[in-house]
Structures are given as structure tokens and as C-alpha cells.
Amino acid sequence: MRVEEVRRHVTTPLTSPAFAPVVPRFTDREYLNIVYRTDAEALRTVVPEPLRIDEPLVRFEVMRMGDVSGYGPYTESGQAIPVSLDGERGEYLHAMYLDNFPATASGREVSAYPKTIGAPNLYVDHGVLVGSLDYGTLRVATATMGYKHHELDRREAEAQITVPTFMLKTVVGYDGSPRVQELVRTEITDIAVKWAYTGPARLQLFQHVLAPLADLPVREVVSASHILTDLTLGGVKPVYDYLEGRAS
């Protein structure tokens, strides 16, 4: 394989890449979002500067991907933390657990999504929307919400999903020290909200050393939403370089 051919590849192995070189389009992406109040000190230990925490809130999410170009259907769960940077409000993506390896590898390598393998699920049980996350054989999160109790304004639903998101990108060099360490920003584009609902909700988090969602404990459930959308994920742009100690 010639040098110029190698340069056209973005992942390994060269002859059987871990993920397809496409910009995925998400069709029928279904969200269960539960925003809850947690301990401010717990947030300060995990949110990197220069991001600022305005309120001690966390958004727990379970997303069922109905169809994704390049990856097929899969389910994802995680935590996002409301933050601000230079006056712009957004969310810091703290942790994401998926049941699809190509989507996990792509999210980490091409962008900076904090993805790892897990076993999330989203389903309806006797009039209750249930979102769960297992790590291995152990349950680490269970969320329940009344199924389609009250319709939610679609503009509000879109605003919930399209806030800018910030992520930490770290690439380790061969000597073990960071080769790249940046705070990056992205946002969702080309979104179409098909329907949206709100209702009563509960959330339980269980202690697990390798899936420490419960380190951000639930003190009060603030709001919940159940949303179906089509969307595209935008590219990432660096906003702060930790190795240089300055904004990008």
C-alpha cells in the first residue's frame, strides 16, 4: 500500500477499518432525558476548567437510534452537565455508554465523545417509559417516566437537544504523556423534532467502580422529556488547548 493510500485512511486496521468514513445521519433518534439536581462539589471534581458550572444539574439520557447511516440501530446512555464558556451556555459530555463498537470507536477517534461499551436499553413497560444502563452484568442506572403524559412544545424540545456541547480530547503520545489535550465544541445540525412529551419521572443510580454515574448523586429530579428526532452531528472545533494553556 502506497504512502498516499495510507493517508486516505482515518482508522485501523487498514484493510478492515473499525468504522465507516461517513458523516452519520440519525433517523428516528429517540431520547429519554432526565435533568436532576446533584452536589455542586461532586460536579467541581469532574468538570474541567475553563468551563464554569452555573447550577448543580446533570442530564441523564438514554438514546435509542432507530437508524444511523454507517452504523445501523444502537442504543446509548450517559450524563451531560450544564456549563458555560465565555458566556455561552452549553453542556459538558461527561460519560457515554454504547452497545455498538463502530460508533464507540468513531466517537472517540474522530471526535472527542467520551464513549465506552455498555448495555443501555429504552422500552415501554405497562404505561411507563423505562431507560436502563447495565455495565457487564450489573445495573448502574434505571430511569422511569410516565409514557407520553403531556405534549412538549417542539421548539422547547429542539432547544434542549441543540445546545452546544463541550468535550475533552486527549491523545496520548508514545512516551505516555499527552500529545493532544484540548477542549472541543460541537453542536447538532439539521434537526427535525417529530414529537416530544414530558411527564413525571424518577431516576436511580447504583455504585459501580468502572461506571461511576452515582458519583453524581440524584438529589432531586427537575424535569423529564421524551423526544423523537432526525438529526446530524456537526464537526468539532477546539476552543482551549491545555498543553498551551490558552484558548484555541
Score class of each variant (00 low, 15 high):
158 E>V: 01
32 L>H: 04
227 I>P: 10
243 L>Q: 01
84 S>D: 07
180 V>A: 12
20 A>H: 14
236 V>I: 13
132 S>E: 14
106 S>C: 12
97 Y>W: 12
223 S>R: 09
16 S>Y: 05
79 Q>I: 02
140 V>D: 01
182 E>C: 09
188 I>W: 04
228 L>N: 15
165 T>M: 12
123 Y>A: 13
212 P>I: 01
194 K>N: 08
99 D>N: 15
187 E>F: 09
171 V>H: 10
36 Y>Q: 15
228 L>M: 15
76 E>R: 03
23 V>D: 12
236 V>L: 03
28 D>E: 02
26 F>Q: 04
244 E>C: 05
75 T>N: 09
21 P>Y: 14
145 M>I: 02
58 V>D: 00
167 M>W: 02
131 G>A: 06
160 Q>N: 10
52 R>W: 05
7 R>E: 07
77 S>I: 09
59 R>P: 00
244 E>H: 05
55 E>T: 00
35 V>P: 00
81 I>A: 05
218 V>A: 11
86 D>V: 00
35 V>N: 11
210 L>T: 13
167 M>H: 10
227 I>Y: 05
211 A>V: 05
245 G>S: 00
87 G>A: 00
183 L>N: 06
195 W>Q: 13
122 L>R: 10
216 L>E: 00
170 T>N: 14
247 A>Y: 15
56 P>R: 00
4 E>Y: 12
81 I>D: 08
18 A>P: 11
207 Q>I: 07
50 P>V: 03
66 G>R: 14
25 R>L: 07
64 R>Y: 09
132 S>W: 04
40 A>F: 09
238 P>C: 02
97 Y>K: 10
48 P>I: 15
17 P>K: 05
85 L>Q: 04
46 V>Y: 08
124 V>M: 04
222 V>P: 01
204 Q>M: 11
248 S>D: 15
166 F>C: 13
193 V>E: 02
191 I>Y: 01
220 E>A: 09
101 F>A: 04
124 V>D: 10
